[in-house]
Computed example of a mutant assay.
Amino acid sequence: MRQVALFCIGGFLGFLIDAGLVQFLVTRFDANPYASRLLSFVCAATGTWLFNRRFTFHGVRHYGHFGEWSRYLLAMSGGFAVNFTIYSTLVYHHELMQRLPALAVAFGSMGGFLVNFSASRFWIFRQKKP
C-alpha cells in the first residue's frame, strides 16, 4: 500500500507538470494541443521517474541512470497511449477541452494510472528475490 500511495503522489506531481506545461503551451503560444502533449509527457515522465526512483521504489538499481530513465519512458508509453487516446478524444470532441486541455489531461491520467503502476512495479523497479 505504501508504494501505491507514493506512486499516486508522484503521479500527482507528474500531472501538475503535464497539465501545467500543456496548458501553458496552448494558451501562451497557441501551440497544437496534441503536439504539446508529447513534450509535456516527456517532462512529466522524467519528473515522476525522479520521484519514484528516490521515494517509491528505492533500493538496488539494475540499470544506470540513462538505462533506467529510457526504460521508464518506454514503460510509461503504454500508460501514455491510454492517456493520450482519452485526451485526444476529449480535445477533439469538446470545445471546453480545447480551451482547457489540462482538464483533458486529468481524465487521461486516470486512464493511464494502472498501466503505469504495473510497468513500474513489475519491470522498471522490480525487486530481485532474495
Rank of each mutant, 00 (worst) to 15 (best):
residue 96 L to K: 11
residue 71 R to G: 13
residue 16 L to T: 04
residue 60 V to G: 01
residue 73 L to H: 15
residue 65 H to T: 07
residue 84 F to V: 12
residue 99 R to S: 15
residue 58 H to G: 03
residue 1 M to P: 02
residue 104 A to D: 06
residue 109 S to T: 09
residue 19 A to I: 05
residue 17 I to T: 01
residue 83 N to M: 12
residue 65 H to W: 10
residue 118 S to Q: 14
residue 53 R to W: 09
residue 36 S to G: 10
residue 124 I to S: 02
residue 117 F to I: 02
residue 56 T to P: 03
residue 71 R to Q: 12
residue 129 K to P: 10
residue 12 F to H: 09
residue 24 F to D: 06
residue 96 L to T: 05
residue 97 M to D: 01
residue 26 V to Y: 06
residue 45 A to I: 07
residue 86 I to Q: 01
residue 36 S to C: 11
residue 99 R to C: 08
residue 83 N to T: 13
residue 108 G to C: 08
residue 37 R to I: 15
residue 6 L to E: 14
residue 117 F to M: 01
residue 26 V to R: 07
residue 101 P to E: 11
residue 69 W to Y: 12
residue 51 F to I: 02
residue 33 P to M: 06
residue 106 A to H: 02
residue 10 G to L: 12
residue 48 T to M: 14
residue 103 L to D: 08
residue 119 A to H: 09
residue 94 H to P: 00
residue 44 A to R: 05
residue 22 V to T: 03
residue 69 W to K: 05
residue 124 I to H: 06
residue 79 G to N: 04
residue 1 M to R: 14
residue 62 H to V: 10
residue 50 L to H: 03
residue 22 V to G: 00
residue 4 V to M: 13
residue 79 G to K: 11
residue 44 A to W: 07
residue 73 L to S: 03
residue 78 G to Y: 08
residue 62 H to A: 14
residue 11 G to N: 04
residue 77 S to C: 15
residue 60 V to F: 06
residue 91 V to G: 03
residue 72 Y to V: 01
residue 102 A to Y: 15
residue 7 F to A: 01
residue 20 G to A: 14
residue 72 Y to H: 04
residue 83 N to L: 12
residue 11 G to H: 07
residue 66 F to K: 08
residue 122 F to D: 13
